[in-house]
Simulated assay, not measured.
Amino acid sequence: MVRTESTMLPLGTPAPSFALEDVISGKAISLDTFKGKKGLLLMFICQHCPFVKHVEDQLGQIGQDYADRGIGILAISSNSIESHPQDSPENMREQVKRANFNFPYAYDATQAVAKSYTAACTPDFFLFDSEFKLAYRGQLDDSRPGNDLPVNGKDLRAALDKVVSGESIPETQKPSIGCNIKWIPGKEPAYFGA
Rank of each mutant, 00 (worst) to 15 (best):
I177V: 14
V113A: 08
E5L: 15
S6C: 02
K27N: 14
D124P: 15
G153F: 01
F34H: 09
K133Q: 11
S17D: 15
L31K: 10
G72K: 06
G60I: 03
P170S: 04
I81Q: 05
D129W: 10
Q86G: 14
I45M: 08
D161E: 15
Q47S: 13
A109W: 05
Y66M: 04
R137Q: 13
Y117I: 04
L31S: 02
A19K: 12
A15M: 06
F44C: 04
T4E: 12
E21A: 13
I81M: 04
P170L: 05
D148K: 06
C179Q: 00
H84K: 06
S30M: 01
V23N: 07
K115Y: 01
P50K: 01
G36V: 09
A106D: 06
V55Y: 00
K182H: 12
V96G: 05
S143D: 02
L140M: 13
F18P: 01
L127D: 03
S83Y: 02
S30E: 07
Q173S: 13
Y136I: 07
S130I: 00
D141F: 00
R137S: 11
L156C: 11
S83N: 12
R3L: 10
N102V: 15
D68S: 13
L41I: 04
Y136P: 00
K187R: 13
N180Y: 11
V163T: 07
P189C: 04
S165G: 09
C121E: 09
C179A: 09
R93V: 13
P16F: 09
T4V: 14
D68T: 14
T118D: 07
V55C: 01
P14Q: 02
M8K: 11
K187Y: 06
N152L: 01
G63Y: 10
T4I: 15
D142Q: 13
K38N: 14
E82A: 13
E82K: 15
K174L: 08
R98H: 12
A112Q: 07
I71H: 09
A15S: 11
G193P: 10
L59A: 10
V164F: 02
C46P: 06
N100C: 11
Q47K: 14
L127G: 02
E90C: 00
P50C: 05
L156S: 04
G26N: 02
Q173M: 15
L140F: 14
M8T: 15
P10E: 10
S116D: 10
